[in-house]
């Protein structure tokens, strides 16, 4: 296809888009919604990954002692273990204060002070390397006087499980919406094709190649896909940046630390743009296919 044919194709695409303007707008909107959901899921997956890494890198072993445990003997034994970075003692009184504060009302547990305090004495142990945490916890659990050594494996497991479920759910929704969007593109382009059916027939008789006939429709579909995705990526980008800013300012969400690096976010947004454009193109090709058999 030479430059003159390309000009013709571009002109035809513009004419068709103008003719079916509102249908094209609706199609673009559907693409925008479906890809915004897909993009939202991708952003969430990236952030979940980061959250898991954060949790893993800050893993602390909480060592809870029996009431009659020899506190200093346990500390000695813990310190003698290889891979221990720091050991901090948290007395049952300190533990109660921290717990009360976390509930938001220090007065709530005021009656549990002293002998009535049900919390055990504890140590917070940090490892020199995250990989050593599981082994250290195992060794500490075997020590006399230690009731429990926990490092939050349940939390990591729960995060993984929840993100796994959400992944499946969002992929399912995204695929359904994407199929719907492609179907709508097929319908929109088919209207354009029907409007130019006579022209297509004449073009075939005059020796126009399939690509020459197909190309204006392909451009039309890709334009709808591209515009829809552009809208969705801009909206998604703005919403995400607002959310990320507010999360960073929120003291309670300090551990979430949303992903803001361009290296991690750019592939998602560029990928979405390409995907939307591709969806538009695929829809067009499906639509034109049967009309080329003249």
């Amino acid at each position: 296809m030479n430059i003159n044919s390309l000009k013709y194709c571009l002109r035809q695409s513009v004419v068709s888009l103008k003719r079916n303007f509102w249908l094209a707008v609706v199609t673009s909107c559907i693409i925008a919604v479906s890809l915004a959901i897909l993009g939202g899921f991708l952003l969430m997956a990236v952030n979940a990954g980061q959250l898991i890494r954060n949790v893993e890198s800050n893993v602390e072993i909480g060592v809870f002692l029996y009431a009659d445990a020899d506190v200093s003997a346990v500390q000695k034994q813990i310190n003698s273990l290889e891979g221990v970075n720091s050991v901090t003692f948290v007395s049952k009184d300190e533990g109660l204060v921290t717990f009360s504060n976390s509930l938001g009302d220090p007065a709530l547990l005021a009656g549990l002070k002293g002998e009535d305090n049900p919390l055990p004495d504890a140590y917070r142990v940090k490892a020199t390397d995250t990989a050593l945490v599981a082994g250290l916890a195992e060794s500490i659990r075997a020590m006399p006087g230690v009731e429990m050594a926990d490092y939050g494996e349940e939390l990591v497991g729960r995060i993984l499980k929840i993100t796994g479920w959400l992944n499946t759910l969002f992929v399912g929704i995204s695929v359904l919406l994407a199929l719907g969007a492609v179907f709508l593109i097929v319908t929109t382009i088919r209207l354009s094709v029907m409007a130019r059916l006579e022209e297509i027939g004449i073009m075939k008789y005059l020796g126009a190649s399939d690509w020459y006939i197909r190309f204006p429709f392909l451009l039309e579909g890709m334009a709808m896909g591209w515009v829809g995705t552009l809208v969705s990526t801009i909206a998604l980008g703005l919403a995400y940046s607002k959310l990320a800013t507010s999360l960073r300012q929120d003291a309670f969400a300090f551990f979430i630390r949303p992903v803001t690096s361009v290296e991690q976010l750019a592939p998602i947004f560029v990928g979405l743009l390409l995907l939307g454009t591709l969806m538009g193109g695929i829809g067009s090709l499906i639509s034109v296919r049967k009309f080329l058999r003249v």
Binding site: N2, I202, M203, G207
Partner: peptide, 11 residues
């Protein structure tokens, strides 16, 4: 002109 455009003739 359409017949010429189809075969990629120059304007």
């Amino acid at each position: 002109a359409f017949a010429m455009q189809v075969v990629g003739a120059t304007p």
